[in-house]
Amino acid sequence: MAEIAVWGVIAALGAATFATRLSFIALFAQTELPRWLRRVLYYVPPAVLAAIVAPQLLSGAPGQHAAPDAPRVVAALLALAIAWRTRSTLLTIGLGMAALWGMRALL
């Protein structure tokens, strides 16, 4: 992508993101969030976060030829359990990386 196009994309994403933040605080300050939109927005974070994580557990790109990468899958499940129990980002990252490196060293 050309230098100027990269700047354009960053600026546009910044503006679009600012618009979501500004929406009810300033733009539609007198409006209530419609119930259906509230339901949709409620489910966006888990759907998006899982969609970001899942392809990173594959050995290849998403599609027909990708297979799960065992050490990454195991480390991710362990990290999910740690995050669920401790709510600690630092422990999740630290123990998850330790698990991945440990399995890479052994296998």
Binding site: P45, P46, Q56, L57, M97
Partner: peptide, 15 residues
């Protein structure tokens, strides 16, 4: 992989 772990840390409390 830190990126994936970071997102797992954000995702877990939502479930």
């Amino acid at each position: 992989f830190v990126v994936a772990l970071t997102f797992i840390g954000v995702l877990a409390p939502l479930l």
